[in-house]
Nucleic acid binder design. Structure first.
Lengths: 120, 120
DNA sequence: CTAAAACCTGACGTTGACGTCAGAGGCAAG
DNA sequence: CTTGCCTCTGACGTCAACGTCAGGTTTTAG
C-alpha cells in the first residue's frame, strides 16, 4: 500500500509517517518511481509507535527499542531501559492521579456555595 | 521573601517564577528598588501551579482557572472547563496504563527466551 | 568600602513532533 | 491528453515552558 492508504488506516498524517521513517522507526520499500510502499504489518507497527509516543518515549528511545521488539530479544541495556521507562510511566500515572484529585477538589470547592475550606 | 527564597523553597527556577508572573499566574509586590516580594502563601500557590502544569494544563488554562480557586466560586463556563480537563486527564491516565502494559509485554517477550508469541 | 551574590529587564536559544508551503514528478479516468 | 489527486524532496514555521546570556542595579557579607 502507498503512504496515503497507510495514513488513512492508522489516522496518522502522511507527514508523520515520513517523519517516522526519517527517525528510523518505520521502513518502506520504494516503487520504481520512488514512491513508498508498505506491507500489511506496517499498520500495527505504526500503532505500536503511536502507543510508545503516547507513553512519553522519544523517537530516539523508540528507535533503540524497536529492534528488540522485532528480534524478540533484549540486551541487558535495553532491558534496563525498558524498565526505567516503565517506572517513569508509573510515576507519571501517579502524578496525574494526584493532579486529577486536586482538580476534583477544586471543582467541589468552587461548585459548592458556602464552602469553608482553606484551599490556597 | 524574595524570588530566590521562593525558588529554593519550591524547587522551581527563578526564571520559571518570573515566567509565571508574566503569564498572570503568580502575583508579587515590589520593593522600593523594584525587586519582587512574596508572601508565605506564594509557596502553596506555586505548588498548585506546578501540579496543574503536570496535569497537562496550559498557562492560559491555568490563568483562567486560578481566579475561581481564589474566589472559591466557579462560573458555569469554568466548571465545564474543569470537568473537561478532568476527563482529559482520565483519558490520559488510561492511555498511559495501556502503554505501560504494552511495555510490560515487550519486557516479558524480549526477556524470555523461546517465547512464541506474535507481537508485531 | 568592596567584592560577591542576588536581582532586574530584555531578548534570543532550545527541544520534539510534526504542520505547511514550494516546486516538480507520477498515475488512473474520461 | 489533460485534469486532478497523490507523491516526492527540501526547508522553514510552530508552540510552550522555560534556559541562557548581556548589561546593568541592589543587597549582603566581611
Amino acid at each position: 500500500m502507498r503512504i496515503g492508504d497507510l495514513a488513512t488506516r492508522t489516522r496518522v498524517s502522511v507527514r508523520a509517517l515520513r517523519y517516522y521513517e526519517e527517525q528510523g522507526l518505520l521502513a518502506s520499500t520504494r516503487s520504481e518511481s520512488g514512491q513508498r510502499l508498505y506491507g500489511a504489518t506496517a499498520v500495527n507497527r505504526v500503532r505500536l509507535i503511536q502507543q510508545l509516543y503516547s507513553a512519553g518515549l522519544s523517537s530516539k528511545t523508540i528507535a533503540e527499542l524497536l529492534p528488540c521488539v522485532d528480534a524478540k530479544v533484549s540486551t541487558p541495556e535495553s532491558r534496563e531501559r525498558l524498565a526505567a521507562e516503565r517506572d517513569r510511566i508509573n510515576t507519571q500515572i501517579a502524578e496525574l492521579i494526584i493532579a486529577r484529585d486536586r482538580l476534583d477538589d477544586i471543582i467541589d470547592m468552587t461548585s459548592r456555595p458556602n464552602s469553608d475550606c482553606d484551599y490556597v
